[in-house]
Design a protein around this nucleic acid. Structure first.
Lengths: 227, 227
DNA sequence: CCACCGTTCAAAGAAGTTCTTGAATAGTCG
DNA sequence: CGACTATTCAAGAACTTCTTTGAACGGTGG
């Protein structure tokens, strides 16, 4: 013990876990799985890859211990192995954003210029909610809202926003949020709302960060019908 | 914007940062650099690789923005780009330890069985220091001690421990610490002390974790001689 | 200016990664 | 049981990474 060979093997082990995240498709998968568990076909759709290739990448994540599976009927559901994996993903994302210069360009190529959208921090939103002068809108798919959302938020999935616009009061500022800082859903919502003459901004990050900061959240409980 | 191609490029960018950590030699380099800056030759020695190969891996870390360089005379010193990189490394190490089953085996192959050494947590050590009934010994090289150490600790680099043993009171428990949970120096020190009949244990992790927890530290200031 | 030292670069072979295609498997449901 | 569905496995082509070797580069100091 204490020898070079054993040390190499140990640190190769740490490298293997990093290797599991060392691929764009796998980082996309982790980013989706932070929102909750998904089956292979859904994940394939989210990352725009074949089911076979998605399965291949999920195997790589599972081999590194980052995700675990559960079978229901003939679907296999994948989820993150623990909250810590989400923290690792956040740490990686933040270090990348802070130190990898090109990333800013890639981010604005994907998200569009964000400067004008002027984002709201978690702290600011907490104050505004306390003051009661904002409407908080969760623009993620309904299933994700049900699994957990900011307390008091209203669920309006992006594709329904145009329709439900008239049910939102015209004179109150609207704050949209979605999956995280690299999710386009809230950006699109804010742009739509502004085109329609509403005052709207986005939360700088998303629901996972809000939950991790232990700010107030809610879950939708579906009452089982009496059989 | 908002299209698949741009999203792939962005997440490939996150993957590239993970790729920088996706190699055992590079994780070893980061683990050393958490202790402070080093020049290439020192680093090559620490990871047991040729200077050329070490330089190659350092370039990879630098390209991902994880490390930065400084030149002094004709040496190039590398250091972590920020405290956040150390946090990313800690997150990776912890996730690997928690979820990657094989890692336990690799760790005990390198470190030896630790059960009997019974480790002390940071909280316990804080209490014991307050109670004043322990001697804290920093077994890292003197330069690392000088760059920062647990307040009140005494520096006895591993290779000098046998010689300086008699200067340690016989009836007080000794707590040794070093670079972190995967560093063998404190283990070796505890084994030596016990063979000599002393009561000794190791701190579960090391100086970087202590500093990160914002527990009391000290730095050695070398007074410049009057010229 | 020249010799030296520490570091980086270039080339090349071996080993590993990614993604596609098509087949195999395992579990469900009539 | 047999047809069906969701997922995984296997093989292969294109590409990337790691390591070694030896040469090139760029400061330093005589």
């Amino acid at each position: 013990m204490g020898n070079r060979e054993a040390k190499e093997a140990l640190f190769d082990g740490f490298g293997d876990v990093a290797k599991a995240l060392a691929n764009g498709r796998r980082t996309e998968l982790v980013d989706v799985l932070v929102q909750g568990e998904r089956h292979v076909e859904e994940l394939a759709g989210e990352i725009g890859q074949s089911v076979a290739n998605t399965s291949f990448h999920l195997r790589a994540l599972a081999a590194a211990g980052l995700v675990v599976t559960r079978r229901d009927k003939n679907r296999v559901y994948y989820r993150l192995a623990s909250e810590r994996v989400a923290e690792l993903w956040t740490a990686l994302r933040d270090v990348a954003a802070a130190h990898h210069a090109e990333l800013d360009d890639l981010a604005s190529a994907y998200l569009g210029k964000r400067d004008q959208l002027d984002e709201l921090s978690r702290d600011e939103l907490t104050k505004r909610i306390a003051a009661g002068d904002v409407i908080v809108v969760d623009v993620r798919p309904a299933a994700e809202f049900a699994a957990g959302h900011i307390r008091g938020a209203r669920s309006i999935p992006g594709d329904r926003l145009a329709k439900e616009l008239r049910t939102l009061p015209a004179d109150v500022e609207i704050v949209a949020y979605c999956r995280g800082p690299y999710c386009v859903l809230a950006d699109e919502a804010v742009r739509l709302l502004r085109r329609r003459g509403r005052r709207a901004r986005r939360l700088a990050d998303g629901f996972p960060e809000w939950r991790h900061a232990r700010l107030p959240i809610e879950t939708v409980v579906v009452a089982a019908p009496i059989v």
